[in-house]
Amino acid sequence: MALERSEVEKIAHLARLGLNEADLPRTTETLNTILGLIDRMQAVDTDGIEPLAHPLETTQRLRADRVTETNRREAYQAVAPAVQDGLYLVPKVIE
């Protein structure tokens, strides 16, 4: 199944990746080559096979409900692109 240009644009939007108009044909072609490789899976008979999400089929360990973290805002925000009054700044959020 080959992706159309418009689908590539939709995927890029979902992934929030800006697409260069000039690169779009090449990107579409490469993605289709990769999907061609992936589509080989469809020939495999997997009827009745349970999907495997984790290699080790163990179960989740639980953590005791204790506060172990202290305020390290200054250290964490030292790597932030834009902060003010302890807040991370982004272009206006519209609801």
Binding site: D65, V67, T68, E69, R72, Y76, D85, G86
Partner: peptide, 27 residues
């Protein structure tokens, strides 16, 4: 109303100074 967050050891107290209860995991 747990003491700490669901996936980290940060406090869940309401009304703290911004981002003072945000740990590495929460960020």
């Amino acid at each position: 109303s747990t003491q700490s967050k669901i996936f980290s050891g940060s406090a869940t107290t309401f009304g703290a100074e911004p981002n003072t209860q945000a740990s590495l995991v929460d960020l």
